[in-house]
Design a protein around this nucleic acid. Structure first.
Lengths: 295, 295
DNA sequence: AGAAATTAATAACTATGAAGCATCAATTAG
DNA sequence: CTAATTGATGCTTCATAGTTATTAATTTCT
């Protein structure tokens, strides 16, 4: 076959099929009548099908023509549809955003950052996974994640990082503990109590920062347990296994017999940071960063 | 927009999307690499979408590109499908055939002609309507019918007509009637009995032919009832309202207390004829006529 | 580190074929 | 029988798909 059927042929065919009149169809298509006649004939040759029964006076669709009119019309509509959706995806109006976050960020990002974005981009689908800092970085590098929320400061080349939420630390005690925000003055009031802390492997820089707090208060804590998530810390504190220090925002969302005393006087802060791979071209990512004023 | 997206672009895009390599894709398409690069770029401009992230060493689909690869692939398959079906319709392998028939043809055509055709063209759908001769001709002229089975001899211009089945006449009597095929000699043995006949308006030529039979037998029958279908004739005969004369093939398919005596000695025959509009280009019609050796 | 190889993009050219104009042929209407 | 209408055909033009040659960027191999 020398000639090849193109969308042009289908559009021309549909015009003639509707008008049943070559000149009128040609006018509608802004081409000349002979050109149209030729393209229709070419289409018929290419298909090996007569589409119109025509003499110099009448134009009439054949059975196959009737069929093709119906089918090609919806075929072209389908194409429009596809290209439109592609545009949505390309512009980030539609698509998927894979998010990772450390457990301690759950009460910050999910209720605060996501609704704002979801509002503006309702067609975007989220996938949310709780992951530790290291796993997030690895997933970002492997392009298995679009955005991470971490509590680390240094990241590999190609990973972008920006602070998103700065948090104070709070002392966590059992409800019935003698200390409260009125009689609490400084941390060394609890220097003889055992502590439950996040594991150092979870985030080394976070661990170092917490140890610095103790250091500044002039004592080395007796650490009775290490765990990896807030709720197990709280459960242990509730049952008098010791006290803990956690980011202040972590007091939200738990209902246990514990109380928090915010350590406003110390200098340490823990920063939740957003991270992404600079080579990730997911348009949804760009929009997410824009909505949150990061780009 | 100056350029217009064509199927060519989609095929080229799919080749590159699969190979992720412009030169290899170009080879597969039997065009040159620069030509391919240009067409892809044109497609991107036309869509306003970047389809590939590429430098001189790597080619990678964007999110929108991934989407389009999937969608356009099935879109083109769908097109193939449509064109194939159009071919079937055009060649008469697929489609619809609207048939009309006089009631007295039911036991001839349906079990004999249709299965043979259905066998060869299983994708063709029939529509069958019992209609009188006149209604069939009208429907043919209005293009509401493809084929008719009639018992008339003359048809308007543009309607083609061919004999398809030549039938003798049979005398219809109640089961307990004194006459049977042994003691029956000639029709005037029943000249004093009342007769039930098809109405003259139903088919004038048929009616005339039946009357000719009586004429040849030398008597004018006493007609007690006129009806329009075989089963009511049989019901009346069964209940001793009179005798009848019908085409012999009409004895099939009824279970009543009646008997038939074939009138072999008379010259009259009734011919079932197939009729169609010569201007009807339904390819299924052509195939039907061919299968039955009419064309 | 430098040379060779790979690969997509760009430039300049070619040739294919879509579309235009003029005209013909067939059909219908008056 | 003439005039009007309409699709097809012949010829021409021009846009553009595709070609060859080359460049620029990157990777791989000495």
């Amino acid at each position: 076959m020398k000639h090849q059927l193109e969308i042009r042929h289908f559009k021309y065919f549909l015009a003639v099929a509707e008008e049943l009149h070559f000149r009128k169809a040609a006018d509608r298509l802004f081409i000349s009548q002979p050109g149209l006649s030729r393209q229709i004939k070419q289409m018929e040759n290419e298909l090996g099908i007569i589409l119109f029964e025509r003499n110099s006076r009448k134009v009439k669709l054949t059975a196959a023509g009737v069929f093709l009119q119906e089918e090609l019309k919806s075929h072209l509509q389908n194409l429009d549809n596809i290209l439109n959706r592609a545009n949505h995806i390309s512009s980030g109006l539609q698509g998927k955003l894979k998010l990772g976050y450390v457990g301690s960020a759950m009460h910050g990002i999910i209720p605060e950052l996501l609704p704002k974005f979801k509002d503006k981009y309702p067609e975007v689908v989220f996938s949310l996974s709780e992951m530790d800092n290291k796993a997030q970085i690895k997933s970002l590098l492997d392009h298995n994640l679009d955005i991470g929320f971490v509590r680390i400061e240094r990241v590999p080349r190609n990973i972008e990082i920006r602070p998103i939420f700065n948090d104070t630390f709070s002392l966590v005690l059992p409800k019935n503990h003698v200390l409260n925000s009125s009689n609490f003055k400084e941390l060394n009031q609890v220097k003889d109590e055992p502590f439950i802390l996040f594991e150092g492997t979870y985030s080394n820089s976070y661990y170092e920062k917490v140890m610095q707090i103790f250091d500044d208060s002039g004592f080395i804590p007796l650490v009775s347990h290490y765990t990896v998530n807030a709720s197990s810390i709280y459960r242990l504190v509730e049952n008098n296994f010791g006290l803990s220090i956690v980011p202040t925002s972590l007091k939200r969302g738990y209902d246990m017999d514990i109380k928090f005393i915010e350590l406003k006087n110390i200098t340490q802060r823990t920063t939740l940071r957003i991270v992404w791979n600079s080579q990730n071209s997911n348009p949804v990512l760009t929009n997410f960063l824009k909505v949150n004023n990061i780009l």
